[in-house]
Write a protein that binds this DNA or RNA. Structure first.
Length: 464
RNA sequence: GGCGGCGUGGCCGAGUGGCUCAGGCGAGGGUCUGCAAAACCCUUCACAGCGGUUCGAUUCCGCUCGCCGCCUCCA
């Protein structure tokens, strides 16, 4: 049974879903004002792995992740580029899906946009005003944090200490520095929606409350996001929901940052790497493997060396896959009984489940995969095809449960490469090694790697 | 100031009160191969510092040093 570290208690707790075998999951998605960076990619991957693992285990996962498509930063971006905020949001939402698709992240079951929920947000804010949890002031409507008992649950701080540490200016007509905007009145030229308090737009913290409750219902199982969202964003979401009598999320989980030289990667620090660039230039699986090898609650560095490291490691996965494919082809063509339906190694799969169930210990799960790869190769080397494919199949099964698949060399060898391979086979048969080596170089120049075995050329695949 | 976290071998990065102290990458040596590649085997290796608890600590406690995050928008 899956247990996860819960932010509210600071302890690991077993996930007890509302409906057995089903997880309702809400993940805070991106504000689409720029291309996504590696930190956003990690976020998408962490919850993709959670979801895939649960689905692999037979659960049904209702996964909601929002798109914040109206926000001060989007408006600012639009202003500086002479476009409408809606054009800006659409462009970067496209970039978001394109990048996460390349990462192999499953699309959420629902991905609501903030602008689709403005009416509902106005309704929620109205109820907060009516129940005196919110107040109108110049500039908009504000939420009164001290009106909610237990404010600070996620921050693990009392309202007093939050108030004294607040770094925000106390102007803005706020009654308390911790209070936050529910509704921002529009300045001239800004996009706006009608409301009882005047035309304006919702504050950021309200959309997730409305959308999660609408799509998942109260008491949904798990609310998740980056550690920076813990406070104030999630605290404020919870405060609104609780103020209106909701239980809100049952469990809370937060993942750590991608860092650069020990510092948080962020737009404001200017030290970010674009996710879009990464998935264009590198094997997207390398980034997934890196996120798997670091625990989700630990910070991780993503350097070019780390990407190269992970890419090389993936080579082990791919090369075993080719080796087993070859074996299966041989077995199939000889219609022999050998290793046709390879059985999983159930002991290994049990260990895998234990690791994953223990707060998603993907580092150990990944280590297990690579250990199995080594053992599978060793078995194959010793001629034990049955054990080799059993272990290898288990490794691939686990990798799949974490969203990692061997690269399939689907594309056929192009004719010019095929011709060179034929020439090389002839040269080798004639023991003309110099000619053979020259041909291998030419083939490599065309982007293909040749691997020979005792009986001749065993494998040709695209170089990486 | 409050709250939270980090400091592991050449590098990345797990984990644990003692047992052969993950895994990947790298380096060196082997096996295999015409040579390579791939694969396997072997070697290399650590727990920031100082105290304390303990039969025994990298793992627990305290302190020191260094670093980071949140308390403002942020995955």
């Amino acid at each position: 049974m899956l247990s996860l570290h819960d932010t509210t208690t600071g302890e690991r707790a077993e996930i007890e879903p509302r409906v057995s075998g089903e997880l309702s999951l809400y993940v805070c998605g991106p504000t689409v004002y720029d291309v996504p960076h590696l930190g956003h990619g990690r976020s998408a991957l962490v919850y993709d792995v959670l979801r895939r693992y649960l689905e692999w285990s037979g659960w049904r996962v209702e996964h909601v992740s929002n798109i914040t498509d109206i926000d001060d930063k989007i408006i600012a971006r639009a202003a500086e580029s002479g476009r409408s905020p809606f054009e800006v949001a659409a462009e970067y939402e496209d970039a978001w899906w394109a990048a996460t698709d390349r990462l192999g992240v499953l699309r959420p079951t629902h991905s609501p946009r903030a602008t689709e929920y403005v009416e509902e947000m106005v309704g929620l804010i109205s109820r907060l005003v009516e129940s005196s949890h919110a107040y109108q002031a110049p500039g908009g409507v504000w939420f009164s944090c001290e009106s909610v008992p237990g404010y600070g649950l996620l921050a693990h701080q009392s309202l007093d200490s939050l108030r004294s540490g607040a770094r925000v200016e106390v102007d803005e007509a706020k009654r308390s520095p911790v209070d936050f905007a529910l509704w921002k009145l529009a300045k001239p030229g800004e996009p706006s929606w009608p409301s009882p308090w005047g035309d304006g737009r919702p504050g950021w913290h309200t959309e997730c409350v409305v959308m999660s409750l609408d799509l998942l219902g109260d008491g949904f199982d798990l609310h998740a996001g980056g550690i920076d969202l813990k406070f104030p964003h999630h605290e404020n979401e919870r405060a609104q929901a609780v103020a209106l009598g909701n239980r809100f999320a049952h469990h809370w989980m937060h993942h750590a940052f991608v860092e650069v030289g020990g510092e948080k990667m962020s737009k404001s620090l200017g030290n970010y790497l674009s996710l879009t660039d990464l998935v264009d230039k590198e094997d997207p699986r390398a980034f997934r493997l890196l996120t798997l090898r670091a625990h989700y609650r630990s910070p991780m560095e993503v350097t070019p060396a780390a990407i190269a490291d992970a890419t090389d490691a993936l080579g082990r996965l791919d090369s075993l896959a080719r080796r087993l494919d070859r074996l299966a082809t041989i077995a199939a063509s000889s219609s022999g009984p050998a290793s046709r339906s390879a059985q999983h190694d159930s002991d290994a799969l049990d260990r895998f489940r234990n690791f994953m169930d223990a707060d998603l210990d993907t580092p150990r799960a990944t280590a297990l995969v690579f250990d199995l790869i080594r053992r599978a190769n060793a078995s194959l080397d010793s001629g034990d095809a049955g054990t080799g494919s059993r272990l290898g199949t288990a490794a691939f099964e686990m990798a799949k449960a974490m969203g990692l698949s061997p690269a399939v060399d689907g594309d056929e060898v192009p004719p010019e490469v095929g011709a060179l391979l034929d020439q090389r086979a002839a040269a080798r048969a004639a023991r003309e090694w110099a000619a053979s080596d020259a041909l291998r170089s030419r083939i490599a120049g065309l982007g293909w790697t040749v691997e020979d075995g005792p009986g001749g050329t065993q494998n040709v695949h695209p170089s990486r």
